[in-house]
Simulated scan of single mutants.
Amino acid sequence: METQALFESVPNFSEGRRHDVMEAIAAAAGTAYLLDTDPDPDHNRAVVSIAGRRDRLVEGLMGAIGEAVRRIDLREHRGVHPRVGAADVVPIIPIGGATLADLGGPDLHLTAGAVCVGARRTLVAFNVTLFDIDLVGARALARSIRESSAGLRGVQALAFELPGSRVQLSMNLFRIDETTPSDVIAELERRGVAMGAQQVVGLCPAIAATPAADGRLLEGRLASAAADAGGDRCESRGGDEHTALADRLRREAAGFARLVADQDAMLGGAERAAALIHVLDAAQVLDGELSAMLEAAARGLRAAVTPATAGVYRARIDALDARLA
């Protein structure tokens, strides 16, 4: 079976308060696999994570963007985050070896604004609440840690004042092979910055995950969506064995969705994702798309296992690597 090219997209919609609107936008993604919806009422913005093969993803994006255009009027929008459109930015991320070109146009829609569509590498959107600092100081801090100001590599940063006199440092970490959330926290601690809650916006690749990403691992959600789809297919086939397997797959899906950024949990998740490829194949419900999702999940979780953990579980690692070879 040929594994299909797989893509993720994380469109940012300018609505984070009206739950009925956010639910309608996510539902309109249609055939794409919905991995996550993450609204922020202060920013009045929601990040929706979807995945699938090229045609499935494009169809899902068109449905969700169309719903956003119908339901969001930027003339009435209020929120601390800058925006240019109802479907504000639509990044598309290859999960595999595919490449994409940027798209664009010069005209603005009267009520929906613009849609910024492009291809990029995986990034982590990471926010930190700051204490004992005002907005002016927070903006100076944001400027100082940006890559463009000779700060941390792969960091874009803004500062926002949130309701309740809270100040937030909002960052995109776009070179996660060089700067992870842990690196940012270490730098802020080195500078003596007083910090509160940490927040991952959307999903986080396991290799860059901290406890702030517990239950929000990209690979966990990919495996969850694949297991859930496999359960649906088993149920549609009918029969006692397929029905029992459907129940098991739905339990697996729930477990993958809750996967935490812990070494033992991520190794176990990698093993289970790799094993499910063979389970779905034996049940005759596997296709190239589900295989790609589970393989991406297993490989991503395996990559997050540190050498120290691998040394402790050498036999398990060798067996997993052989299965993924």
Results as ranks from 00 to 15, higher is better:
residue 3 T to V: 11
residue 8 E to T: 01
residue 9 S to R: 06
residue 12 N to D: 06
residue 14 S to V: 06
residue 23 E to S: 15
residue 26 A to S: 11
residue 27 A to Q: 12
residue 29 A to M: 12
residue 29 A to W: 01
residue 38 D to S: 13
residue 40 D to L: 10
residue 40 D to Y: 08
residue 41 P to G: 10
residue 42 D to C: 10
residue 43 H to A: 15
residue 45 R to H: 01
residue 46 A to S: 15
residue 47 V to G: 05
residue 50 I to N: 01
residue 51 A to E: 04
residue 51 A to P: 02
residue 52 G to F: 01
residue 52 G to S: 07
residue 53 R to H: 12
residue 53 R to N: 14
residue 54 R to P: 10
residue 58 V to F: 03
residue 60 G to K: 04
residue 60 G to N: 04
residue 65 I to E: 03
residue 67 E to R: 13
residue 69 V to A: 14
residue 73 D to A: 13
residue 80 V to D: 09
residue 81 H to L: 04
residue 81 H to Q: 02
residue 84 V to R: 02
residue 85 G to P: 01
residue 85 G to N: 07
residue 91 P to H: 07
residue 93 I to P: 02
residue 98 A to W: 02
residue 99 T to K: 15
residue 100 L to M: 12
residue 100 L to Q: 05
residue 102 D to H: 11
residue 104 G to D: 02
residue 105 G to N: 09
residue 107 D to K: 13
residue 109 H to C: 08
residue 110 L to Y: 12
residue 111 T to M: 13
residue 119 A to M: 11
residue 124 V to A: 03
residue 127 N to M: 05
residue 128 V to A: 12
residue 130 L to S: 10
residue 130 L to G: 09
residue 131 F to N: 14
residue 131 F to Q: 14
residue 132 D to N: 14
residue 132 D to R: 12
residue 133 I to K: 10
residue 135 L to E: 08
residue 139 R to K: 13
residue 143 R to T: 06
residue 144 S to P: 03
residue 151 G to E: 12
residue 154 G to M: 06
residue 155 V to S: 05
residue 155 V to H: 06
residue 156 Q to R: 15
residue 157 A to W: 06
residue 159 A to L: 05
residue 161 E to F: 04
residue 174 F to H: 11
residue 179 T to C: 09
residue 181 P to N: 07
residue 181 P to G: 05
residue 182 S to R: 13
residue 187 E to Y: 13
residue 190 R to F: 08
residue 195 M to I: 14
residue 206 A to I: 05
residue 207 I to W: 01
residue 216 R to S: 10
residue 221 R to Q: 11
residue 222 L to R: 01
residue 225 A to T: 01
residue 229 A to R: 14
residue 230 G to F: 00
residue 232 D to N: 14
residue 234 C to R: 07
residue 235 E to P: 06
residue 238 G to C: 08
residue 239 G to L: 03
residue 246 A to D: 04
residue 247 D to F: 07
residue 248 R to W: 00
residue 254 A to S: 12
residue 257 A to T: 10
residue 258 R to Y: 05
residue 262 D to Q: 13
residue 262 D to N: 13
residue 266 M to R: 09
residue 269 G to V: 12
residue 270 A to E: 10
residue 271 E to C: 10
residue 272 R to P: 07
residue 272 R to Y: 12
residue 274 A to Q: 09
residue 274 A to I: 09
residue 276 L to D: 09
residue 277 I to A: 06
residue 277 I to P: 00
residue 277 I to C: 14
residue 278 H to D: 15
residue 279 V to W: 03
residue 281 D to F: 08
residue 282 A to V: 09
residue 282 A to C: 11
residue 283 A to C: 11
residue 286 L to N: 02
residue 287 D to H: 03
residue 288 G to N: 08
residue 291 S to N: 13
residue 292 A to F: 03
residue 292 A to K: 02
residue 292 A to Q: 05
residue 295 E to Y: 00
residue 297 A to P: 02
residue 299 R to W: 00
residue 299 R to S: 12
residue 299 R to Q: 12
residue 302 R to V: 03
residue 304 A to C: 04
residue 305 V to N: 03
residue 307 P to F: 03
residue 308 A to V: 13
residue 312 V to G: 11
residue 318 D to R: 15
residue 322 A to I: 07
